[in-house]
Each structure stands twice: as structure tokens, then as C-alpha cells.
Design a protein around this nucleic acid. Structure first.
Lengths: 138, 138
DNA sequence: TCCAGAAATTGAAATAATCAAAATAATGCT
DNA sequence: AGCATTATTTTGATTATTTCAATTTCTGGA
């Protein structure tokens, strides 16, 4: 992971204890929710307001330092793997989320038949299934 | 659109005025939120409780009569196009959602490099971009 | 028609996220 | 380093979406 302070400076963002801690938390717990991350941050710097967590996550995501994922039926999650085109695999049963790398070169049908005049900038893929643990539990 | 009563019977579901109206509403307003649909239903049958709308949507989705979509940063939406593999295109600016058909035969990388032991049953794709209206408005 | 189970209504509540105003901290300049 | 400006954080309230639980009503089958 890049130094949080450098990362913030690099984007022209103010460097605050909260943002640094949030960045670290996202690194340390990939796919954490805002609530998960707030807990981690509190463990690191003692206290932070909910609002500051949301602000930091929003700002960091807007500047491409982290990525926001919004799976069906769960709070938004955040991760610091950005810039590669990995996707996510979510367990329908327990909600666990893991990264998956797509076969290189096989960009998922970015050529849609009819783009309806939209300017498309991202194709987001979520794979749904059942994780090994939940498969065993049946 | 199939007859709502037949659709319900076909799945062994009780036929209620609320479910029929919800099915019709979903047909008539693709990509509507629960709230949008509740309004439409009220226009048709006068009154329905919020809970009944959610129950109906949940049940219908669970039985494959409708599909639930959960785009980042918006309430869940519903549509009655099921059984084909069309995907969605969402405008980042105004939130509008339209259907897109993928180029036939180009199933989006269903062969992930490492499935982490998951049993994958669905690949959900959301295209993000800017709609023609919002492009013009710039 | 009547009964048992399913679904709807009602009202409260949980969850996730955002808003707004005041207090605090960071940055840039001298 | 000190100070003013601007951005960020805190605080507390608020919205939006969805779910829970108890009661009433309706549906489908005997």
C-alpha cells in the first residue's frame, strides 16, 4: 500500500488524521462497510464521527483512492484495490465478498449492441453464488 | 406481458388484488422503485400498504416473476423482463436506467480465473455512464 | 359455506446515509 | 512561527428505505 499521506497530497487533498486512518482501515479490511471501518478507525485513533467516516470515504472514492461497491441488500463497501479491473463474487447466503480476477483480455462485453446514446465509462460485474463454507453447511 | 393471474397460479402463489396490481405496475414502469410502484398501484386499486408492496415485490422476485436490481446509490428497482440476459445502463448524473442487450454469444467473463470455491450462478453487469440528456446539458 | 393457512394492514423500529450549523483543524502566505 | 482563509470535523437532527411484529382480512380447498 502507498503511504496514505502521499496519496492524499498527490490528489491535492488536505491531510487529516481521520482521512489517514480511514485509508488505513480500508486497506486493512477490504470490503468493509462504513460501520466496520469506523470501528477500525476508532481502534486506531480513538474516536471519529460517523459523518467524518462518510465524508472521508466519499472524498477518497471521488478521487479514485478507494473504490465503493454497492452489493444488493447490504450497505456500501469499500476497498483500496483500484486501477485494476478485478470484480467481485458475493455469497447469497452469508454475504461474504471476495475478489476475482477476470481472465485477461476478456473484458466483459463492453461492446453493447445499442448504447442508447450513453457515454459508457465503466462495466461493473458482480458474480452471485454460494461460498464454500455455506456450501458445506448444507 | 403474461396474464398476472396465470403467472401467480403457475407458481402456486395466492392470487391477491395487491399482487396483481404490483405485477401490472412493474410491467408498466420498468425500473421503478418500490415507492414509484406503490403510487402506480394506488392509482389502480385505490390503496395498498407499503408493507404489502414490499411483500409482493419480495415474493414475486423470489419466484422469478420479476427481477430486482440494486444500483449503487439508489433504492432497489424492479422489472418484469426476466429469463433473458439483458443488463443495465445507469446514468451517473440523473440516475436513469435503461436496458441493454449484450452482444449475443459474448457472455461476460463467466470463466473467472479463480472462483475461490464458490458455486457461481449469476453474473450481474451494470454499465455506468452518462445519458444523452445529461451529455447535452453540459 | 366454513376453516386453516397465507397475505394484508397497522404502527413501530432498524439501518444506512445525509443535512445543516457550529467548532476545529489544515493550508498557504508573510 | 503566526495568522487568516478555507476545508474538515463534530454534533445532533433528519430522511429514505426497508423490515419486524401483532392483528385483521382474505384466499383456496374440504
Amino acid at each position: 500500500m502507498l503511504d496514505p499521506i502521499e496519496s492524499l497530497r498527490g490528489r491535492g487533498l488536505s491531510v487529516t488524521a481521520q482521512r489517514i486512518a480511514v485509508l488505513r482501515a480500508v486497506s486493512g479490511r477490504p470490503h468493509g462497510t462504513a460501520d466496520d471501518l469506523a470501528e477500525d478507525v476508532r481502534r486506531e485513533i480513538g474516536t471519529i464521527s460517523r459523518q467524518a467516516v462518510y465524508n472521508a470515504l466519499g472524498t477518497l472514492a471521488a478521487h479514485g483512492l478507494i473504490r465503493r461497491i454497492q452489493p444488493s441488500g447490504s450497505a456500501a463497501r469499500y476497498e483500496d484495490r483500484v486501477g485494476d479491473d478485478h470484480q467481485h463474487l458475493v455469497c447469497r447466503s452469508c454475504g461474504e465478498m471476495v475478489d476475482v480476477d477476470c481472465a485477461p483480455g476478456e473484458t466483459p462485453c463492453l461492446n453493447v449492441v445499442d448504447d442508447a446514446g450513453y457515454e459508457i465509462d465503466e462495466a461493473e460485474v458482480v458474480y452471485w453464488g454460494t461460498c464454500p463454507k455455506c456450501l458445506k453447511a448444507r
